[in-house]
Amino acid sequence: MNKIVAKRFPRNAVRAGAVAVGVLAAVPLVGQGMAHADTQVRLPNQTVTKKLADGTALTITRTNERARINPSMGGTPLHRNAWVSGRYDVKASDKKAKLGIASGYIVGCQLTLGGNSTTKGTATPGTGDYDVPISATAETGASVTLGPGQAANYTINDVEGKDDFGAESHGAAVTFAGGSGAVAYTNETMMINGCAGYAQARSYAKVQVMTDHTTQVVYLYGKPFSLG
Rank of each mutant, 00 (worst) to 15 (best):
G197L: 04
P148G: 08
R202V: 11
T61N: 09
L58V: 11
G147Q: 11
Q110L: 06
G222P: 02
S103P: 04
E139G: 15
A25H: 00
A92N: 09
K96S: 15
A67V: 05
T59Q: 14
T175P: 00
G17N: 09
A16V: 06
Y198D: 10
T59H: 11
D164M: 02
G128C: 03
N64C: 00
I101L: 11
R42P: 00
T63A: 11
T39F: 01
T49N: 13
Y130N: 12
R15A: 14
G222F: 03
T118A: 15
G197C: 04
F9D: 00
A16L: 09
L78N: 08
E65S: 03
D54I: 10
A20Q: 08
G149E: 06
K162I: 01
R8E: 00
I106T: 11
W83L: 07
V30P: 04
T122S: 15
C195A: 05
V159E: 11
R66N: 07
A16Q: 12
Y198H: 12
V90Q: 10
G166D: 05
T145G: 06
D38Y: 06
T145Q: 10
D129E: 13
R11Y: 01
T122F: 09
S203M: 01
A92Q: 04
A102D: 13
S117Y: 04
L111A: 13
K51A: 12
T76F: 07
S226L: 03
G141R: 10
V19W: 10
I134K: 08
D94T: 07
N157T: 12
D164H: 01
L99D: 06
T155P: 02
A26C: 11
A26Q: 08
